[in-house]
C-alpha cells in the first residue's frame, strides 16, 4: 500500500481536516484548562454530556444542543453542591458526572439501536455525516472565536482570580464562560474522538506546550501545533493499522508529550550542571 493512499479517499481528507480543526480548538482551550487545574472538570463534563445527547435524540433536537446543556448542568450542579457542603470538590465532581453518565447509560440501553449514539461515545471521524460535520464545524469555530476574543481576560482569570476581580472583571461570569467554552469544546470534539477520550485532547496538548515554553503566547502556538500534528497523524495511522481512530489520535498526543518530556529533561539536566 502506498503511503499516499489515504489521501485518495475523500472521507480521509475530510477526516484529516476535521481532526485538524478539532485539534486546534481543544489545544487552545487546553492551555487554559491546564493552567487552571481543571483536568477533572474536563473529564467530568465530557462524561456528563451523555444524558443530554440521549435526551436530545429522543426529543429530536440537534445532539450538540442537548450535550451542551447537560455539560453546563453538570458544571453548575458541581459548583452548587460544593458551595453548600463540606465535601471536597473532586469528590463532588466524581459523584455528579458518574450519576449523570449512569443515567445517560440507562436511557441509552433503553433506546439503543441507533448507531449515532455509540459514535458519540467512541467517535466516528471516518464515517462522519454531512449534518454532524456541519454541527462540529459550527461548534468548533464559535468556541475558538470566543476563546481567542477573550483570551486576555481568561488568561488573567486562570492566573490570578483575585486580581481579576480587583481590577473589575466579572469573575463569576468568566468562570461560567470558561465552563461554557469547555462544554462547547467537548461538543465540538465528541463526533471526532468520542466523549470518553475527549479529556486527552483537552489536557495533553497544553501540558506538552507547557514543558516546552514558559510564555503563554508561545504555549498557545505550540499546543495547537502539537495537537494538529497528533490528530492528523492519528487519523492517518489508523487507516493503515485499521484500529480505533480516537485511540490512535490520543496515543499520538501521548507520543508528542513523551518527546517534549525528554527534551525538557535533557535541557534541565544541562542547566543544573
Amino acid at each position: 500500500m502506498n503511503w499516499l493512499d489515504p489521501l485518495r479517499y475523500s472521507f480521509m481528507t475530510e477526516a484529516l481536516m476535521v481532526s485538524a480543526l478539532v485539534g486546534t480548538v481543544c489545544a487552545v482551550f487546553s492551555c487554559y484548562l491546564v493552567l487552571k487545574g481543571w483536568s477533572l472538570m474536563g473529564d467530568a463534563i465530557s462524561h456528563a454530556v451523555l444524558p443530554g445527547v440521549v435526551v436530545a435524540y429522543l426529543v429530536g433536537i440537534p445532539l450538540p444542543v442537548g450535550a451542551f446543556a447537560a455539560g453546563l448542568l453538570c458544571a453548575t450542579a458541581t459548583g452548587w453542591i460544593k458551595a453548600s457542603t463540606r465535601i471536597k470538590e473532586d469528590t463532588v465532581m466524581g459523584i455528579v458526572f458518574t450519576g449523570m453518565f449512569a443515567f445517560g447509560l440507562v436511557l441509552f440501553t433503553k433506546v439503543e439501536t441507533d448507531a449515532h449514539l455509540s459514535h458519540i461515545l467512541f467517535g466516528n471521524i471516518l464515517g462522519i455525516e454531512r449534518d454532524d460535520l456541519i454541527q462540529t464545524v459550527i461548534a468548533a469555530v464559535v468556541t475558538l472565536g470566543i476563546v481567542l476574543a477573550m483570551r486576555k481576560d481568561l488568561m488573567l482569570f486562570c492566573f490570578d482570580t483575585a486580581h481579576a476581580r480587583a481590577i473589575g472583571l466579572n469573575t463569576t461570569m468568566l468562570h461560567y464562560v470558561l465552563l461554557a467554552l469547555l462544554s462547547g469544546t467537548i461538543v465540538a470534539s465528541m463526533q471526532a474522538v468520542g466523549i470518553i477520550l475527549v479529556v486527552a485532547m483537552l489536557v495533553t496538548p497544553g501540558c506538552t506546550a507547557r514543558l516546552l515554553t514558559d510564555r503563554f503566547d508561545r504555549m498557545l502556538i505550540l499546543a495547537t501545533a502539537s495537537s494538529v500534528i497528533a490528530s492528523c497523524l492519528g487519523v492517518y495511522v489508523s487507516f493503515f493499522v485499521n484500529g480505533a481512530t480516537g485511540a490512535c489520535i490520543v496515543l499520538a498526543q501521548a507520543l508528542l508529550f513523551a518527546a517534549a518530556f525528554l527534551w525538557h529533561q535533557r535541557r534541565r539536566s544541562r542547566f543544573s550542571v
Partner: peptide, 21 residues
C-alpha cells in the same frame, strides 16, 4: 513539575487509548 491533575489526565487517557486500540 506539571500539575498533578494534568499528569493524571495524560497518563490515564494514554493508557486507556492504548487499551482501546
Amino acid at each position: 513539575g506539571l500539575r498533578e491533575d494534568a499528569v493524571i489526565g495524560i497518563v490515564f487517557t494514554s493508557w486507556f487509548a492504548l487499551g482501546l486500540l
